[in-house]
Simulated assay, not measured.
Amino acid sequence: MAKFVWSLVFTVVVFCRHFNAKNVDKRILMNDPDLFHSQIQAVQRELEKVNSHLTNTIAAQQAEIESLKQITNNRYANQGSTYTIWGKRNCPPKNGTDTVYSGIAGGGHYNRDGNGANTLCLPHNPDPAPLDFPTHFQNDDRASSSFIYGSEYQYTYRNVAVDDDVPCAVCDVANVSSIIMIPAKMTCPSKWSIEYAGVLTAASQYSGLAIREYLCVDENAEYLMDGTRQNFDGRLFYPVQAACGALPCPPYKESQLIACVVCSK
Protein backbone atom coordinates (compact mmCIF):
# COMPACT_ATOMS: atom_id res chain seq x y z
CA MET A 1 0.00 0.00 0.00
CA ALA A 2 2.86 2.42 0.84
CA LYS A 3 4.38 1.72 -2.57
CA PHE A 4 1.09 2.61 -4.26
CA VAL A 5 0.72 5.92 -2.30
CA TRP A 6 4.21 7.07 -3.27
CA SER A 7 3.47 6.20 -6.90
CA LEU A 8 0.29 8.29 -6.82
CA VAL A 9 2.10 11.26 -5.21
CA PHE A 10 4.84 11.07 -7.82
CA THR A 11 2.26 11.11 -10.65
CA VAL A 12 0.48 14.17 -9.22
CA VAL A 13 3.78 16.07 -8.71
CA VAL A 14 4.88 15.36 -12.29
CA PHE A 15 1.51 16.51 -13.58
CA CYS A 16 1.65 19.77 -11.60
CA ARG A 17 5.17 20.55 -12.79
CA HIS A 18 4.18 19.82 -16.37
CA PHE A 19 1.08 21.97 -16.11
CA ASN A 20 2.96 24.93 -14.59
CA ALA A 21 5.82 24.72 -17.11
CA LYS A 22 3.48 24.91 -20.10
CA ASN A 23 1.45 27.72 -18.66
CA VAL A 24 4.06 29.87 -16.94
CA ASP A 25 3.28 32.82 -19.23
CA LYS A 26 -0.46 32.26 -19.42
CA ARG A 27 -3.24 33.57 -17.20
CA ILE A 28 -6.73 32.15 -17.08
CA LEU A 29 -9.02 35.03 -17.72
CA MET A 30 -12.64 34.75 -16.74
CA ASN A 31 -13.59 36.72 -19.88
CA ASP A 32 -11.78 34.16 -22.13
CA PRO A 33 -14.09 31.09 -22.06
CA ASP A 34 -12.20 29.24 -24.81
CA LEU A 35 -8.93 29.33 -22.88
CA PHE A 36 -10.71 28.40 -19.66
CA HIS A 37 -12.49 25.48 -21.35
CA SER A 38 -9.27 24.17 -22.91
CA GLN A 39 -7.54 24.28 -19.53
CA ILE A 40 -10.41 22.32 -17.92
CA GLN A 41 -10.19 19.68 -20.66
CA ALA A 42 -6.43 19.37 -20.12
CA VAL A 43 -6.99 18.85 -16.40
CA GLN A 44 -9.68 16.25 -17.11
CA ARG A 45 -7.35 14.35 -19.46
CA GLU A 46 -4.61 14.31 -16.86
CA LEU A 47 -7.05 13.12 -14.19
CA GLU A 48 -8.21 10.34 -16.51
CA LYS A 49 -4.59 9.24 -16.90
CA VAL A 50 -4.14 9.27 -13.12
CA ASN A 51 -7.37 7.31 -12.66
CA SER A 52 -6.33 4.78 -15.30
CA HIS A 53 -2.94 4.37 -13.62
CA LEU A 54 -4.64 3.96 -10.24
CA THR A 55 -7.04 1.33 -11.60
CA ASN A 56 -4.24 -0.64 -13.23
CA THR A 57 -2.13 -0.48 -10.06
CA ILE A 58 -4.99 -1.74 -7.88
CA ALA A 59 -5.75 -4.56 -10.33
CA ALA A 60 -2.10 -5.60 -10.39
CA GLN A 61 -1.89 -5.60 -6.59
CA GLN A 62 -5.10 -7.64 -6.30
CA ALA A 63 -3.74 -10.18 -8.76
CA GLU A 64 -0.49 -10.41 -6.77
CA ILE A 65 -2.44 -10.91 -3.53
CA GLU A 66 -4.51 -13.71 -5.08
CA SER A 67 -1.35 -15.34 -6.40
CA LEU A 68 0.27 -15.25 -2.96
CA LYS A 69 -2.88 -16.71 -1.40
CA GLN A 70 -2.83 -19.56 -3.91
CA ILE A 71 0.84 -20.27 -3.23
CA THR A 72 0.20 -20.27 0.54
CA ASN A 73 -2.81 -22.57 0.19
CA ASN A 74 -0.87 -25.00 -2.00
CA ARG A 75 2.02 -25.11 0.43
CA TYR A 76 -0.34 -25.76 3.34
CA ALA A 77 -2.21 -28.44 1.40
CA ASN A 78 1.06 -30.24 0.69
CA GLN A 79 2.19 -30.15 4.30
CA GLY A 80 2.13 -33.24 6.43
CA SER A 81 4.02 -35.10 9.09
CA THR A 82 4.49 -38.65 10.31
CA TYR A 83 4.69 -40.47 13.63
CA THR A 84 4.74 -44.04 14.91
CA ILE A 85 1.91 -45.31 17.06
CA TRP A 86 3.07 -48.03 19.47
CA GLY A 87 0.76 -50.84 20.51
CA LYS A 88 -1.67 -50.52 17.57
CA ARG A 89 -1.89 -52.44 14.30
CA ASN A 90 -3.20 -49.42 12.38
CA CYS A 91 -3.32 -45.65 12.69
CA PRO A 92 -6.25 -43.84 14.33
CA PRO A 93 -9.35 -43.59 12.09
CA LYS A 94 -9.12 -39.82 11.87
CA ASN A 95 -9.82 -37.58 8.90
CA GLY A 96 -6.50 -36.76 7.25
CA THR A 97 -4.56 -39.63 8.90
CA ASP A 98 -3.40 -42.58 6.80
CA THR A 99 -1.52 -45.74 7.69
CA VAL A 100 1.77 -45.81 5.78
CA TYR A 101 2.48 -49.38 6.92
CA SER A 102 1.82 -51.69 9.85
CA GLY A 103 4.60 -53.47 11.60
CA ILE A 104 6.29 -55.14 14.54
CA ALA A 105 7.98 -53.15 17.30
CA GLY A 106 11.63 -54.18 17.36
CA GLY A 107 14.83 -53.18 19.11
CA GLY A 108 17.84 -54.30 21.11
CA HIS A 109 17.69 -57.09 23.72
CA TYR A 110 16.54 -55.92 27.14
CA ASN A 111 19.70 -56.98 29.04
CA ARG A 112 22.46 -56.94 26.44
CA ASP A 113 24.84 -54.14 25.60
CA GLY A 114 25.26 -52.96 22.06
CA ASN A 115 22.62 -52.98 19.32
CA GLY A 116 20.59 -49.85 18.64
CA ALA A 117 19.21 -47.71 21.44
CA ASN A 118 16.09 -46.68 19.54
CA THR A 119 13.04 -48.80 18.76
CA LEU A 120 11.96 -49.45 15.17
CA CYS A 121 8.66 -50.32 13.54
CA LEU A 122 9.62 -53.29 11.37
CA PRO A 123 7.35 -54.02 8.38
CA HIS A 124 5.61 -57.38 8.01
CA ASN A 125 7.04 -57.88 4.52
CA PRO A 126 10.82 -57.33 4.81
CA ASP A 127 13.06 -57.23 1.76
CA PRO A 128 16.42 -59.02 1.90
CA ALA A 129 19.64 -57.04 2.02
CA PRO A 130 21.72 -56.95 -1.19
CA LEU A 131 23.17 -60.37 -1.93
CA ASP A 132 26.63 -58.90 -2.51
CA PHE A 133 26.67 -56.99 0.79
CA PRO A 134 30.20 -57.45 2.22
CA THR A 135 30.33 -59.35 5.51
CA HIS A 136 33.15 -60.55 7.74
CA PHE A 137 31.38 -63.35 9.55
CA GLN A 138 33.75 -66.19 10.36
CA ASN A 139 32.56 -69.49 11.77
CA ASP A 140 29.17 -67.91 12.51
CA ASP A 141 30.79 -65.30 14.73
CA ARG A 142 27.68 -63.64 16.17
CA ALA A 143 29.81 -61.09 18.02
CA SER A 144 30.71 -59.47 14.70
CA SER A 145 27.20 -58.15 14.06
CA SER A 146 24.25 -56.52 15.78
CA PHE A 147 20.81 -58.05 16.26
CA ILE A 148 17.28 -56.75 16.40
CA TYR A 149 14.57 -58.47 18.44
CA GLY A 150 10.82 -58.36 18.58
CA SER A 151 9.07 -56.70 21.51
CA GLU A 152 6.84 -57.80 24.38
CA TYR A 153 4.64 -56.01 26.89
CA GLN A 154 5.70 -56.28 30.52
CA TYR A 155 2.34 -55.26 31.93
CA THR A 156 -1.28 -56.41 31.73
CA TYR A 157 -3.90 -53.80 30.89
CA ARG A 158 -7.22 -53.96 29.03
CA ASN A 159 -6.58 -55.91 25.82
CA VAL A 160 -2.95 -56.96 26.38
CA ALA A 161 -1.05 -59.11 28.87
CA VAL A 162 2.56 -59.70 29.85
CA ASP A 163 4.58 -61.33 27.03
CA ASP A 164 2.13 -60.33 24.28
CA ASP A 165 4.00 -59.16 21.19
CA VAL A 166 3.84 -55.42 20.44
CA PRO A 167 2.50 -54.14 17.09
CA CYS A 168 3.08 -50.68 15.63
CA ALA A 169 2.09 -48.55 12.67
CA VAL A 170 3.60 -45.56 10.90
CA CYS A 171 1.04 -42.79 10.37
CA ASP A 172 0.93 -39.93 7.87
CA VAL A 173 -1.06 -36.87 8.99
CA ALA A 174 -2.08 -34.37 6.32
CA ASN A 175 -2.14 -30.59 6.79
CA VAL A 176 0.05 -30.50 9.90
CA SER A 177 3.64 -29.37 10.34
CA SER A 178 4.48 -30.51 13.87
CA ILE A 179 3.92 -33.63 15.97
CA ILE A 180 5.07 -33.97 19.59
CA MET A 181 4.82 -36.49 22.39
CA ILE A 182 4.04 -34.94 25.77
CA PRO A 183 4.77 -37.08 28.84
CA ALA A 184 2.53 -37.00 31.91
CA LYS A 185 -0.44 -35.61 29.94
CA MET A 186 -3.57 -37.13 28.40
CA THR A 187 -4.73 -33.96 26.65
CA CYS A 188 -3.11 -31.59 24.15
CA PRO A 189 -2.41 -27.86 24.52
CA SER A 190 -4.71 -25.29 22.95
CA LYS A 191 -4.61 -25.28 19.12
CA TRP A 192 -3.12 -28.80 19.07
CA SER A 193 -5.05 -31.95 18.09
CA ILE A 194 -4.75 -35.29 19.84
CA GLU A 195 -3.51 -38.23 17.79
CA TYR A 196 -3.55 -40.76 20.60
CA ALA A 197 -3.00 -41.00 24.34
CA GLY A 198 -1.64 -43.79 26.51
CA VAL A 199 1.05 -44.84 28.96
CA LEU A 200 4.74 -44.00 28.92
CA THR A 201 7.07 -47.01 28.62
CA ALA A 202 10.81 -47.68 28.71
CA ALA A 203 13.27 -50.36 29.83
CA SER A 204 13.28 -51.60 33.41
CA GLN A 205 16.03 -50.06 35.54
CA TYR A 206 16.68 -53.56 36.94
CA SER A 207 17.21 -55.22 33.57
CA GLY A 208 20.94 -54.66 33.25
CA LEU A 209 22.86 -51.97 31.40
CA ALA A 210 20.66 -51.68 28.34
CA ILE A 211 18.88 -48.32 28.07
CA ARG A 212 15.83 -47.87 25.88
CA GLU A 213 13.98 -44.73 24.84
CA TYR A 214 10.72 -43.54 26.33
CA LEU A 215 7.81 -44.47 24.06
CA CYS A 216 4.10 -43.69 24.29
CA VAL A 217 1.98 -46.85 23.98
CA ASP A 218 -1.68 -46.41 23.08
CA GLU A 219 -4.06 -46.78 26.04
CA ASN A 220 -6.09 -49.31 24.05
CA ALA A 221 -3.06 -51.31 22.96
CA GLU A 222 -3.39 -54.46 20.89
CA TYR A 223 -1.17 -57.51 20.42
CA LEU A 224 0.16 -59.02 17.21
CA MET A 225 -2.46 -61.37 15.80
CA ASP A 226 0.27 -63.57 14.33
CA GLY A 227 2.46 -63.27 17.42
CA THR A 228 3.33 -66.17 19.68
CA ARG A 229 2.18 -64.69 23.02
CA GLN A 230 5.07 -66.62 24.57
CA ASN A 231 7.95 -65.33 26.69
CA PHE A 232 10.82 -64.75 24.26
CA ASP A 233 11.90 -61.45 25.86
CA GLY A 234 13.79 -59.24 23.37
CA ARG A 235 12.85 -55.55 23.45
CA LEU A 236 10.62 -55.16 26.52
CA PHE A 237 8.05 -52.44 27.19
CA TYR A 238 7.85 -51.58 30.91
CA PRO A 239 5.52 -48.91 32.31
CA VAL A 240 7.23 -45.84 33.78
CA GLN A 241 6.69 -44.63 37.35
CA ALA A 242 7.54 -41.34 39.01
CA ALA A 243 10.46 -41.20 41.47
CA CYS A 244 10.23 -38.25 43.86
CA GLY A 245 13.31 -36.17 44.64
CA ALA A 246 14.58 -33.95 41.88
CA LEU A 247 11.16 -34.69 40.37
CA PRO A 248 8.87 -32.55 42.58
CA CYS A 249 6.14 -34.27 44.56
CA PRO A 250 3.60 -32.75 44.43
CA PRO A 251 2.54 -32.31 41.71
CA TYR A 252 3.88 -35.81 40.97
CA LYS A 253 3.34 -38.74 43.30
CA GLU A 254 5.79 -41.45 44.30
CA SER A 255 5.42 -44.53 42.02
CA GLN A 256 2.69 -42.81 40.01
CA LEU A 257 2.36 -44.30 36.52
CA ILE A 258 3.16 -41.74 33.85
CA ALA A 259 0.66 -41.05 31.06
CA CYS A 260 1.48 -39.62 27.63
CA VAL A 261 -0.18 -38.06 24.62
CA VAL A 262 0.82 -37.48 20.99
CA CYS A 263 -0.34 -34.14 19.56
CA SER A 264 -0.29 -32.53 16.13
CA LYS A 265 -0.70 -29.00 14.77
Rank of each mutant, 00 (worst) to 15 (best):
F237C: 02
G245N: 08
S7P: 03
L120R: 08
I85C: 00
P128N: 11
G116Y: 15
G114N: 13
Y223P: 01
D140L: 04
A246S: 11
Q205I: 15
S38M: 10
N31Q: 13
R89Q: 10
G96M: 02
D25V: 06
D132P: 06
P93L: 07
E66Q: 07
S145N: 09
M181S: 11
V240T: 08
N73Q: 14
P250R: 05
V160G: 00
K22C: 08
Y196E: 04
Q44L: 10
L29R: 13
A2C: 03
T11E: 15
P93H: 15
E48S: 10
C216F: 09
Q256N: 10
N74A: 09
Y214W: 06
S38P: 00
S204H: 06
L224Q: 14
T55K: 10
F137V: 07
E46Q: 07
Q41R: 10
Q62S: 09
I258S: 03
F232I: 00
K191Y: 15
R235Q: 05
T72Q: 15
M186S: 14
D164R: 01
R112N: 14
G107P: 06
Y157T: 12
S178G: 03
C171R: 05
N159C: 01
A221Q: 02
H37C: 00
D163W: 13
R27Q: 14
C16G: 08
P183Y: 15
R75I: 08
V5W: 15
I28K: 10
P250D: 10
I65D: 14
W6F: 10
G245H: 03
S67E: 15
V43P: 05
T99S: 07
M1D: 04
N78T: 08
Q62A: 04
T156Q: 01
A105M: 03
I104T: 05
A203M: 02
D164L: 03
A105E: 03
L247I: 05
S144P: 00
G150E: 10
I194G: 00
S264T: 07
V262F: 03
C91K: 01
T201V: 11
Q241P: 00
G198W: 05
Q79L: 06
Q79V: 01
C16D: 04
G150Q: 08
A203S: 02
P126E: 12
C216G: 09
L131D: 09
T201S: 11
N125I: 13
I180V: 14
F19Q: 02
P128A: 12
G116K: 14
P250G: 01
A174E: 15
V100D: 04
F237S: 04
N231M: 05
Y155D: 07
A2K: 11
V50I: 12
P189G: 03
E254W: 11
T11R: 13
I104N: 03
P93T: 10
L224K: 05
I104Y: 07
Q230H: 06
H136Q: 11
K22E: 12
H53S: 10
H124V: 02
G227R: 06
R17I: 07
P167F: 06
C121G: 01
A197K: 14
M30A: 09
S52H: 13
V176S: 00
N90T: 12
T97M: 10
M1W: 08
I40K: 05
L224C: 04
P251R: 10
T119H: 07
N90H: 15
P33Q: 03
M186A: 06
L122W: 11
V9A: 09
Y110Q: 07
S190L: 08
A105G: 02
W6A: 05
N90E: 13
A117G: 09
E219L: 09
